[in-house]
Design a protein around this nucleic acid. Sequence first.
DNA 1: TTTAATCAATTAAACGTTTGTTTAGTTTAA
DNA 2: TTAAACTAAACAAACGTTTAATTGATTAAA
Lengths: 207, 207
Amino acid sequence: MNDKHKHILEAAEQLFAEKGFNGTSVRDIAGAAGVNIAMISYYFGSKENLMIALIDYRSEYTRDILEEMNNNKMLTPWDKIEKLIDLYVDKILNNYRFYRIMTLHLATSQSDEIREKIIEIKAGNFELIKKIILEGQRKNVFRKIDMELTIGTVMGTIAQVTSSRSLYCKLLKIDIKDDDGYRKKMTLKLRTHLKQMLKAHLHIQNT
Amino acid sequence: MNDKHKHILEAAEQLFAEKGFNGTSVRDIAGAAGVNIAMISYYFGSKENLMIALIDYRSEYTRDILEEMNNNKMLTPWDKIEKLIDLYVDKILNNYRFYRIMTLHLATSQSDEIREKIIEIKAGNFELIKKIILEGQRKNVFRKIDMELTIGTVMGTIAQVTSSRSLYCKLLKIDIKDDDGYRKKMTLKLRTHLKQMLKAHLHIQNT
DNA sequence: TTTAATCAATTAAACGTTTGTTTAGTTTAA
DNA sequence: TTAAACTAAACAAACGTTTAATTGATTAAA
């Protein structure tokens, strides 16, 4: 995996996020990366293998950060929830193209191999978050909630903002072409909203 | 728009939801619907027009129900929120194929005309929900929250469950082929979870 | 130092399929 | 008889992939 490999992957990522996997041709990718069409087969074997290489390329580190946070004994469950939200909001909004591709591929049944790979990664992250919430419940600071859907709400809200960007640009009157403006505004809004909501949701009521 | 039109649209809907718009060929659709390939151009003009026809076909009524609920003076804001959740969860999970297509199409920039159509529909629904929340705030039963992201959370959570179905089937140990089982289980879980969460989120704290 | 050999990197061109759409003709029903 | 419904076949264009030839750099022998 040299610089040229990465350069092609990053060009492919942009196109896949914009037009979807099937909407992007190998010629598009080669054109955007400025290489010969045959180089893509030569480097990756096939278009599908290129997609798998892209997932591997982008999936590094997330797990490490989550695991490290999970093992940190200094942080309270509330701290961990706040850190978790910051981590995910930042990570997804800074790699929104890649996450859009993951969502698109998970929704459609194009390639079993790719889908299994994505599910494996997501399920792993899911378990780590579950541990944080369970710890909070054991320490009696979180109430009983629907575990899967609570995590689904966090993921889903962030995914909504990245996958329906054109809708939110219209609603919030942000220029659709202003990538940076959208990301900055949404990062702030998402962090505040999710923390406020999860605080209310997880807090033990005294009613 | 006769029965044969509808039959083709429903075959297309299934395939688009499974394989995406670009992943589905006109021959696939014709084959699934049991009609000659040329009939699709004859009926709809083009593949893109077929998609637009599908959106029109499935977008009826939602607005009407929302508007009727909004104008109902007997319901409290809390009642409306509960009704809203029931309506959306049922509607989306019973038409999950169609909603997956909408999400896929909104995320990618394949056709401006189609995307604009979807944005228009979604933005309209957005405004109606906004009115419900604003009414609750005016009556001092809802607290101040991030309007766009609160609605985004409701939509996003439901969308998450439909677009990442294969992930949730693995997590909840539901057979991936058991369409009905998944829908019934998720309808219940979603209704409970969203009501519980929104109640905590919108409730006026006395801290 | 020059020459020859070697091998990966790169290319243009072509491969056979599949794509969405159209044509030209046939069937059906009023 | 006429117009709409329907079909098999063909269309050019685009698809992912492969081929065969060429380049460029590295190594070994003369």
